Amino acid sequence: MLTTDFQPGSPCWLDLGAPDTDAAAAFYGELFGWEFHSLGSEAMGYGFFQQGGKTVCALGPLMDEDARSAWTLYFQTADADATTKAVEQAGGVVRVAPMDVFTEGRLAAYTDPAGAEFAVWQPGDTRGVDVVNDPGTLCWSELHTPDPAGARAFYGSVFGWDTEDMPMDGFTYTVLSTAGGGREAAFGGSMPEGPDEQPRWLPYFEVADADAIVARAQELGGRVVLPAATAEGIGRMARLADRTGRSSPSSRATTRRRRSPVRGRATPVATRRDGRHRAGGPTSGGPPGRRTHRRQQVP
């Protein structure tokens, strides 16, 4: 299961790039009860979403007028430079070369061979988000890809992840775990992408009731892309589009009321939002730490 005892290869940070950060902060604040704490004009509007005083993710403006709203997932690495070499050797594209974010850490961003974008974070003063697996926080990460076998090989080469295939209705779901951690270290999964879907990483946010989240999202101006449905033994899921993206970025809400076959524990609900931005770097420039700073520009 995902924890804040971040291990190499585990998700440790995520941020949202939005064309209208005020609208995004209002929408997700109403939906999840998050409080947005901006780092001010020196950070170009970047800031943290917090819950109970703990950071759950971050939000920043898009850096390109042609970009689309997107969540960027960061995976922990002990050495961003070594990971960058591994990505290149495995056939990935380096979108942002390793760069320091003051003393907070070091980041790099990539595109995998199938086109899914992701980033890594080498921790310094900032290790990652403060809380996971509570309602309103990250609880799972999922890769949608046109080439599951290629993704297994690529990410296995880069991060050394362990994998376990689980037959589903009409496809195979691959559970992802940090190297040597076994099923208890599972943090996400990989599955074939759907029709007309672009390769992408999707974060899930745990909630108490997927149906209530769907209703609330609609009240706030969001749109239901896929209505809530129950996946036997896993939970209840719905896919939503928030009101902030010009290109209708979407979210998924998942209520898991049974014992998860992956994580082996009762799991309430999750919501995820996805989209893509144009290649050229993560929207945020990485986890900037807990103090106001002058934001570094992405190359």
Rank of each mutant, 00 (worst) to 15 (best):
Cys139Lys: 13
Val214Thr: 03
Met99Asp: 09
Gly40Arg: 13
Ala217Cys: 03
Thr145Ala: 00
Gln50Asp: 10
Gly128Pro: 09
Ser41Pro: 11
Pro299Lys: 11
Ser251Trp: 00
Phe171Ser: 12
Met168Trp: 12
Arg243Ala: 14
Ala153Gln: 05
Ala26Phe: 12
Ala108Trp: 11
Pro249Lys: 03
Asp112Glu: 08
Val175Pro: 03
Phe27His: 00
Pro199Ile: 03
Met99Gly: 09
Ser248Thr: 08
Ala151Lys: 02
Thr292Cys: 12
Gln296Tyr: 12
Phe102Ala: 10
Thr72Met: 15
Arg263Phe: 01
Leu39Lys: 02
Gly40Cys: 15
Ala229Gln: 05
Leu107His: 12
Ala212Ile: 05
Asn133Leu: 14
Ala228Ile: 01
Pro192Asp: 11
Gln297Val: 14
Thr145Leu: 07
Ala116Ile: 00
Ala153Asn: 11
Gly264Phe: 01
Met99Glu: 12
Asn133Met: 15
Arg106Leu: 06
Ala228Asp: 04
Asp242Gly: 13
Ala86Met: 08
Val158Glu: 06
Pro268Val: 08
Leu220Arg: 03
Asp125Ile: 07
Trp34Met: 13
Ala109Glu: 05
Trp121Met: 06
Trp201Lys: 09
Ala229Lys: 10
Trp140Met: 07
Glu42Leu: 13
Ala210Asn: 06
Gly47Met: 10
Glu88Met: 14
Val158Asn: 04
Gly45Ser: 09
Tyr155Ser: 06
Glu232Lys: 10
Phe36Leu: 04
Leu31Met: 14
Leu39Arg: 05
Trp121Arg: 07
Gly17Met: 09
Ala90Gln: 04
Leu14Thr: 06
Ala25Lys: 10
Arg276Lys: 04
Thr271Met: 15
Arg68Met: 14
Ala58Glu: 14
Gln297His: 15
Asp112Asn: 02
Met166Asp: 07
Val56Cys: 07
Arg291Tyr: 05
Gly160Ile: 01
Glu197Leu: 06
Trp140Leu: 07
Ala241Met: 02
Ala25Glu: 05
Gly233Glu: 08
Glu164Ser: 11
Pro113Leu: 00
